[in-house]
Design a protein around this nucleic acid. Sequence first.
DNA 1: AGTCAGTCTGGAATCGTTTCCAGAATATTG
DNA 2: CAATATTCTGGAAACGATTCCAGACTGACT
Lengths: 333, 333
Amino acid sequence: MIKGLAMAVTIKDVARLAGVSASSVCRALADPARVRPETRERVEHAARELGYHPNRVARSLITGRTLNIGVVLPDLANPFFPSVVKSIQTRARELDYAVFLSDTDEDPAVEVPAIRALAKQVDGFLLCSPRAPDEDLRSFAGEKPIVVLNRRITPFPSVTADSADGMRQAVAHLHALGHRSIAYVAGPRTSWSNRDRQRGLRAATAARGMTLVDAGNVAPTVDGGAAAADLVLATSATAVLAYNDLIALGLLQRFHARGVAVPGRISVVGFDDILVAALVGPPLTTVAIAKEQIGRVGVDLLLPLMAGHEDGTARRVLPTQLIVRGSTGPAPV
Amino acid sequence: MIKGLAMAVTIKDVARLAGVSASSVCRALADPARVRPETRERVEHAARELGYHPNRVARSLITGRTLNIGVVLPDLANPFFPSVVKSIQTRARELDYAVFLSDTDEDPAVEVPAIRALAKQVDGFLLCSPRAPDEDLRSFAGEKPIVVLNRRITPFPSVTADSADGMRQAVAHLHALGHRSIAYVAGPRTSWSNRDRQRGLRAATAARGMTLVDAGNVAPTVDGGAAAADLVLATSATAVLAYNDLIALGLLQRFHARGVAVPGRISVVGFDDILVAALVGPPLTTVAIAKEQIGRVGVDLLLPLMAGHEDGTARRVLPTQLIVRGSTGPAPV
DNA sequence: AGTCAGTCTGGAATCGTTTCCAGAATATTG
DNA sequence: CAATATTCTGGAAACGATTCCAGACTGACT
């Protein structure tokens, strides 16, 4: 009895009120078919009377299952991640799982401790765009079911977007508009998606004999993009592709501030299709990826792992789709 | 030994390796001062050797504390909430708490079950803009420590923004620009902040003898705002204030689509100052609230409650600040 | 009526940790 | 050196649920 907080009602209270043993209460509630209808009735009534809800913590101690899943991601302030988390949450709730959230603030060094801290309280993890080195993450292999989103790393199942195809679409679009020299503003070096997108872009431009200008790495934020804008303008590029939409928005902002016409002087393409991409002026041409699907598919991949089936290394690659808006136009003559 | 998953190392394993009892291991790790330096050394070494981390679940069963806090909010897709969650997360991590997240999808009926489901696994709750009726929420009073954000409801401590002052600033700004008739596009009826903001706006316009036009309630989303845009134009209002930035962005979008000049024909003011507000064209004039503070202050208010101190009903009201950008201008003549 | 199969039930053990208690070891004092 | 005070330690109980086991009961059948 602590500080006036109502004492939690336990299975014993129910047992006493129903006049049966704790084991019977447990059975009656978990699997009504295993007790006589009359006891079931008595137990259910008593449980309702007292407002009994089994203590998940105590249960998980004996069953070894917590019905929780852990989600670790680099930065909730990046609008991409909330969409993913939301879809995870929705799917998790359907399956009666609760969600632990851990934001690592883009710091790779925080990831492993964050996972470690949650490990005992969850049945499995969804690692969203993890930044930590492969070896570090692999140290969890076999310890806990893990599904990785937006990154491919053996031996974990993963859900990724088809960046190569997205880049192919974007490059084809720009090529058709007459662009021959494209700059790429890269995201964090530790980001697998960044490398993946860069790789896809390199292949796509090479395939068409276009020039690819490296505009360096920046933080995947609006400020990062703004910082890269002037560098981009100093090159020969007539179009710029950003690692993600936030960077692209930063580019747009800085271009606008400097009076650089978009798409007149330079075309801008983003990646992710976050909500705001459609709202800015000019609206951003971007490569959309199925954000809501990532989370749902991730959970569905995690499920069999948590149930103990060694479904090993399923790799789901989700399609990407170029969304053409106002920020891209014909190359200047 | 289940399905190849490495068996978790328990306190007994450490005890065996260190050649001491489980209780000594516990003491050595929890409070090194209570054991002889030599045992401490042995235990620490053994723990490190085996990679032992105490099982929080088991611990919480006996201590009654989980070191988890639950966060419940209406919609992660609204950029306002991720900022709050992020600040909660940051503060919680500093204090060695982990965060449970539950998104109710703006459905008031989901809130109570969501809280109920998490109740046994957390030491306290941060309810972000809860939509459920007062009575429903009050049923948790005394059961679990709860701090409410963006809503005031006895007997819970709360953290809110000074909407009245924000509205006063916005109205003063518009009045100075010559506007005399203002429309308000309201958010969810179940939202306390919506009522609070509406109240503040009513007072501020009345104080200056201005006309306040009610443009109805819409969902707090871009689409909601777009839907309200035409209604607003049909009124005599020369300026429109939205319940939040998303609605304001929807208004801007629809105005732009219809070729309505902003701020030439009509001025637009939002609320919250979400990241994108500054990025759209024209950039949105809006009332900023200290999003990062809300979460931090909320956690700090929750802390003493979870420790058992009945600090009752602290009410923190955070300041608001009008941010003037391009979406407001002189009233048309 | 007696045997047997099957259904229900209560008691005990268990999960991994913390905490209480009492006894052992060590240190302090006259 | 003996007596006392102090520090450390191990064993056992506890947290709240689930699960195994064995015994009690029911009913069916010969």
